[in-house]
């Protein structure tokens, strides 16, 4: 088991007006892993994320970062927010300046870095998010996907250990989604722990190492994506199962074994490859 980077212990969070968003919720996010947080609308994903970098403070329970309880004083929060980068669902709530260069420089400047270092980081983040050349365009003329990338650049420039993204694929077309996945994979390879909220089971199945499933502010299940997402209880709560998993088991029932001891297809393309492989092996025999 990889060590945890963020841990929630019996956390409860209630909004004014007695709206319970999280109820004695416990979960662990592993260091260096890709975790997908799943749950229906209103199940508490966004609220959970706002606890992860100290935007909200739970009324009960504790949030631990790197094994230590979060300190909610100025210094503690600044350190936490540098380590846990948060990308909001709506880019307009994050981009405060009409100039993305200014926007991206905001985070690193707040950490107290010197100007030269801030400029280098802004340039790097622009490149990393494929935004070079767009920094002279006003924010309101950028496409949704470009704004979204600008938001991530603004967080990456702070060099966070954990990147938390709230429904990063909502509103993106398939091409942009694929591009986005590539960028996330690069970050993952670089050692950043990634946490995303999503409704998309197929995407979680294809991408995530671990999943955490919420149900009405409680933890329904937590575990490895490939094992957990095929469980009937997940199917019952989320109203669907990953299509690749369903197809795979159907194929297995009809005698085309696509599961291997160590291999389980996670995407449509992988499944097709596995089936073709299987056929070839049978023909050779």
């Amino acid at each position: 088991m990889t060590p945890s980077i963020i841990e929630l212990q019996e956390v409860s969070f209630t909004y004014p007006g007695d709206i319970v968003a999280l109820n004695t919720f416990s979960a662990t996010f592993a260091r260096g892993r890709r975790t997908a947080v799943l749950g229906r609308n209103g199940s508490g994903k966004t609220t959970l994320f706002s606890l992860l970098n100290g935007l909200q403070r739970p009324q009960k329970g504790a949030v631990l970062f790197g094994g230590e309880p979060i300190r909610y004083d100025r210094q503690g929060l600044l350190k936490l927010r540098q380590s846990v980068g948060m990308v909001f669902q709506d880019p307009d709530s994050q981009l405060f300046s009409a100039c993305i260069y200014e926007d991206i420089s905001f985070g690193p400047f707040n950490i107290g870095l010197p100007e030269a270092e801030v400029r280098t980081r802004v340039e790097t983040a622009l490149q990393q998010m494929r935004l070079t050349g767009l920094e002279n365009r006003p924010t309101h003329s950028l496409s949704f996907g470009q704004k979204k990338r600008a938001c991530i650049a603004g967080v990456l420039a702070m060099h966070p250990q954990v990147l938390v993204l709230d429904e990063p694929f909502a509103g993106l077309d398939p091409v942009m989604t694929a591009e986005f996945m590539t960028i996330l994979d690069e970050l993952h390879q670089g050692g950043t722990s990634l946490i995303i909220a999503t409704h998309d089971l197929d995407l979680a199945y294809a991408w995530a190492d671990d999943v955490i499933i919420l149900q009405d502010g409680r933890l329904l299940a937590q575990g490895e994506a490939l094992k957990l997402l095929v469980q009937p209880l997940v199917h019952a709560e989320l109203g669907a199962a990953p299509i690749v998993a369903e197809l795979s088991s159907a194929l297995t029932l009809t005698g085309t074994g696509v599961y291997d001891k160590w291999y389980q297809p996670r995407t449509g393309a992988e499944l097709v490859r596995a089936v073709l492989n299987q056929n070839r092996q049978e023909n050779e025999q």
Partner: peptide
């Protein structure tokens, strides 16, 4: 939300 957006980056 905007206020949160700013807070989240320190």
């Amino acid at each position: 939300q905007n206020h949160h957006g700013l807070l989240a980056r320190g």
